[in-house]
Computed example of a mutant assay.
Amino acid sequence: MSNSYLESVIKQFQYYKSLGDKTFEQLSEDQIFYTLNDETNSMAIIVKHIAGNMLSRWTNFLLEDGEKEWRNRDQEFENSFITKKEVIDYWEQGWKCLFDAITPLAIDNLDKIIYIRNQGHTVTEAINRQLCHYSYHTGQIVFLGKMLTNEKWQSLSIPKGNSKQYNQEKFSKEKTRKHFTEDL
């Protein structure tokens, strides 16, 4: 494996963070806390869970189990936020922890065994596990944002009905090697 994996995975994490950021920008304070019923989570709760997971998984992750004793996962599903700013600040705290942990990694780190709940993972496996987890929940945030803003939603990808135009623009350029997020 080469450095291209680390560069790519960091860009992927940045991309999913940006989807959440762009969703939050479109929402009111009330919308951040909206729940359909008692069995669903608001975006605030989803953020609390993602950031709580990030803080646990990535704090001293090369030396300590990723499920920290101080983490209380069940409380992540109980709202303690009052404002949208608190939600976004916690979101930022979680992502900072993740990026501070993975940005300095080198190729030599990728095969090291680390633990999450006493289950051994290579660093690569742990990164992939969390990338999937965070993209899953970010998708929930985006879906809720689209539902709540309805016709006011500003697309975060290719808007409906614009695929042909988007593809024409892409195929009108020379082939290049770069990460897909560089054009967003």
Rank of each mutant, 00 (worst) to 15 (best):
T83N: 02
K85E: 05
V87M: 00
V87C: 01
D89L: 06
Y90V: 10
W91G: 05
W91D: 11
E92V: 03
Q93C: 11
Q93R: 14
Q93S: 12
G94D: 02
W95N: 12
K96H: 11
C97R: 15
L98H: 03
F99G: 10
A101Y: 11
I102G: 13
I102N: 11
T103G: 01
P104R: 01
P104D: 07
P104E: 03
L105V: 00
L105A: 02
A106C: 12
A106D: 15
I107N: 09
I107L: 06
D108R: 15
L110F: 13
L110C: 05
D111Y: 06
I113P: 10
I113D: 12
I114L: 00
Y115L: 14
Y115M: 08
I116K: 08
R117I: 00
Q119E: 06
G120N: 12
T122V: 10
T122Q: 04
V123H: 04
V123C: 04
T124L: 08
E125G: 10
I127Q: 01
I127Y: 07
I127E: 01
N128Q: 06
R129I: 00
R129F: 09
Q130Y: 15
C132T: 15
C132S: 14
H133V: 15
H133C: 12
S135F: 07
H137C: 02
T138A: 07
T138I: 11
G139T: 05
G139H: 07
V142C: 05
F143M: 12
F143R: 13
L144N: 08
K146E: 15
K146Q: 15
M147W: 01
M147V: 06
T149I: 02
E151P: 07
E151S: 09
K152V: 02
K152A: 11
K152N: 10
W153C: 10
Q154T: 08
S155Q: 12
L156A: 10
L156E: 07
L156W: 11
